[in-house]
Design a protein around this nucleic acid. Structure first.
Lengths: 332, 332
DNA sequence: CTAAAAAATGTAATCAATTACATTTTAATT
DNA sequence: AATTAAAATGTAATTGATTACATTTTTTAG
């Protein structure tokens, strides 16, 4: 493999000139530039990134921490990250953490060892209490941690969940079940708050047996729905905090001989691509998944370069998508 | 940030000894090892990977070329890759190519510039005709190119498609539609071959109007299905080359007032997690997605280290999953 | 045409680790 | 105790690009 020295010899110039031809061509006279470019072509020279990264002290790589790459919502976010990263000259390392702290640690440490220039975190645990390097360029996307000044791209989950709950109320539902995610995450807490807000606003009592906890998986949706169906007065509508759980809940409803939406309304969250093709098509909240990624990446770019991002906490818009899985309460 | 020199000073040994303590501890006496380890702890030293990678001439990074990270099958494969990579000391760069050759080029070139030590390719185009660096460690997973000696992890797509077609035939279907992917890929060609094999074996004439081309997206499934429904004698069963297209086809069937499977049987391929939760649940071929990833990664590891992988073309098992979207032909 | 300013180019240090080879220390053998 | 072999440690070169600073060349201004 040709090095910059080979090129400089063939072109009859110094290595500095070759380097400059590549990185600051306007600092080189047109004549030598041509000579050097010819030499580069002749030798098929490509700068060694290992050497360049080492010398410039940056990896031009960022890592994205994701609990599960196979989650269709996260994979769209990552697609957005990758696109913007590419256009900004960064490569994207995949940090599938499977929710394990040790793996988060491993990947977060890559900043300290210069393997990576920054971190985008899709579910938020870092920085840990016990003093992980907090100076690492870090941006949270989708989820966030309250009370820190870590830049984030979020949805107004409170309002979104409130809107969805109000949609169900507007259909005449009073007894509304909820299937949450793990209560540790801010996203879940916010959506729960939105659900409660809507009930309060409409003077509907909050019934704790209507609130069940899932883990954002399809199977947890079936389980939680089944629990709700066993209530003394089962809900006439269920709001699930993501589409997967809603799909699980629909399946369980059908298994129990219930028609969706005639006997029970079921709503989701995220608007994954399969939501539209469920039976019945799912009422849900759509989020601009790719935009979470692109925005997070450009914010991280700012942070890496020492610039305060414009909006430290950016909120992206959502949309209530009404399909056929929700309908009027017919039990009244 | 502490360097190896800081540690060596504090420990009162040479940098070589510090380096050895880390990489070949058995070459260092127990006494000095303890001293060095104490100094490392004291300084909170972490070796700079940029320097190490530069010096050792390897990035400890591999790149995975995937046409679309948001595809649920591919994202499972990637999960497998990531897991094995991690355990082998490799980081995984994400190369979402969106099917664009220029992006494939960009990522493939990372091997030449030492940014990455090897490539796993999930849809196969590289090496291109026009002489990209063929010496790059490369493994194909899921798809492959015939007539090269590039190691690959594959499914026996011919047999799998044949099995599925035979399943439909066994249900009494004779007029069987097919929705393929883009005909350029080996996977598609093989599945087409399997379909034809089954028909021939059962002395059923191959009807070209029964074969339509999709692009593995849901919407292409609806379109292709609609085409098939317009045939003079529409098929009583449709075999779709992936689950997404099957989901699209089911939707189109319902839209046309057809009951699945009573009026028409529809089958998919891949067994993505939503297949089980379709309405009706999808008959499909399940593939060990994660295993494609783990196997491909360990093969790539061999190739990178100059060892011929044991089975240059590894075949993974598949399983015919019969659910409710296929049933007896009632039009006879 | 000359002096000063600006532009272009070159020299060599630098980044932080690894490692071949040299040297010193320790252990083993007689 | 002397000799040899083995183990431990140290010295310094090396990796390939970038870049501060020095030097040379070109341009501009008077």
């Amino acid at each position: 493999m040709a090095t910059i020295r080979d090129v400089s010899k063939i072109a009859g110039v110094s290595v500095a000139t070759v380097s400059r031809t590549l990185s600051k061509p306007d600092k080189v006279s047109a004549k030598t530039r041509k000579i050097v470019e010819a030499a580069i072509k002749k030798t098929n020279y490509k700068p060694d990134m290992l050497a360049r990264n080492f010398r410039t002290r940056k990896s031009s790589t960022i890592v994205v921490l994701v609990p599960d790459i196979a989650n269709p919502f996260f994979s769209r976010v990552i697609r957005g990250i990758e696109q913007t990263a590419q256009s900004l000259g960064y490569a994207v390392l995949l940090g599938d953490t499977q929710g394990l702290r040790t793996r988060e640690y491993t990947y977060a440490n890559m900043v300290r060892t210069s393997q990576t220039d920054g971190i985008i975190q899709l579910d938020c645990h870092i920085p840990f209490e016990d003093g992980i390097d907090t100076s690492a360029p870090l941006v949270n996307a989708c989820d966030c941690i309250r009370g820190t000044d870590i830049p984030s791209v979020e949805l107004d989950n409170v309002t979104a969940a409130q809107k969805m709950t109000e949609h169900l109320i507007s259909l005449g539902h009073i007894n509304i079940g909820l299937i949450t995610g793990p209560l540790s995450s801010t996203v879940t807490k916010d959506r729960l708050k939105g659900y409660k807000n809507a009930l309060k606003k409409n003077a509907i009592a909050i019934n704790d047996t209507n609130i069940t906890v899932g883990d954002y998986s399809i199977s947890s949706g079936t389980l939680a729905a089944n629990d709700l169906f066993k209530n003394k007065t089962p809900p006439s509508a269920i709001f699930c905090m993501n589409d997967e759980m809603a799909i699980g809940a629909i399946q369980q409803a059908k298994k129990n001989g219930l028609n969706v939406p005639n006997d029970i309304s079921i709503a989701g969250f995220d608007d994954i691509s399969f939501a539209e093709f469920c039976d019945p098509p799912l009422t849900t909240i759509s989020q601009p998944a790719e935009e979470f990624g692109t925005k997070a990446m450009s914010m991280l770019y700012d942070v890496i370069n020492g610039n305060e991002p414009e909006n430290k906490n950016t909120y992206l818009p959502f949309e209530l998508i009404i399909r056929d899985s929700t309908g009027p309460n017919k039990r009244i």
